[in-house]
Design a protein around this nucleic acid. Structure first.
Lengths: 138, 138
DNA sequence: TCCTACATTGGACTTTGTCTAAGTCAAGAT
DNA sequence: ATCTTGACTTAGACAAAGTCCAATGTAGGA
């Protein structure tokens, strides 16, 4: 049973078959599916699930902070269930593979005060780009 | 006269009225317009310019490395003419204002070897998020 | 078991971006 | 100066990603 589902249940979420399958799809490490991919995988388990429900459910999970929204390619957003360990992303420039990574040091501290334009910083997102071993070899 | 236009001319680009107005729109600092915003501003100067031409021209400028594509909100891509000074972006979480910023240190070096999964790193994109002075006060 | 507020559905709609066939034009050649 | 031609532009159809809505279904408390 997925951690994600346990956490959602703990928040008093109404548990439906649809939400259950979406939560089950979004389980594991280095998982970064688009909404359509989530819908396709969910539909294997529950064929009648609608796209709107997948979008609704993903949006609620994001609002609750249980899932992260990632957009590394300027196209479809991807959904990352690994919301409880701060991490960044490493993306292959050729094939698009995404890995979760953990940079060292305090990323916010890298922005000097005179470069903050008076903003109150609260978060930082980093996307590393390069060729994965498979694409570099090919 | 825009720097951007000078650089494009230097590359043997065929110079048309449409390309001229797109280049003029994309001039200045902290400029991050969407394609539709570029089209609207270009159409003030050249009313008959088409959306397709704006998309084509922006795409070519990006391919030539004269303009950067930025997607900080998962919605429309934005176009940044400041392609000749490496920089990152600072985005207001409420109003979406974007500023160009220059972090200190080597950003690529922040990713330890054991977190690189065998990738050959080539670039890193950083988005700092927080509240701008206006939104923090409101 | 019954109620009802909340969840789901399908389809229409919006936004953002791409593609194509036909017409137009910048710039080198004459 | 004008001609020629391949590159550029255009309008509109199309596609992908996401939102919205009214009607229907249902989880979970009374």
């Amino acid at each position: 049973m997925s951690d994600l589902l346990d956490r959602l249940r703990g928040r008093g979420w109404r548990l439906t078959a649809q939400r259950r399958v979406v939560a089950e799809v979004l389980d594991g490490d280095h998982v970064h599916y688009t909404a359509d991919e989530v819908h396709a995988k969910a539909a294997e388990m529950l064929p009648e699930i609608s796209r709107a429900t997948v979008y609704n459910t993903l949006g609620e999970m994001v609002s609750l902070g249980e899932v992260l929204e990632v957009s590394t390619d300027g196209r479809a957003k991807r959904y990352d269930p690994n919301a409880h360990h701060a991490h960044q992303h490493l993306v292959c420039s050729r094939c698009g593979t995404i890995r979760d990574v953990h940079p060292s040091g305090d990323l916010l501290a890298g922005l000097p005060p005179e470069e903050r334009f008076g903003f109150q910083l609260s978060a930082v997102e980093v996307t590393y780009r390069g060729l994965c071993p498979g694409c570099a070899a090919g």
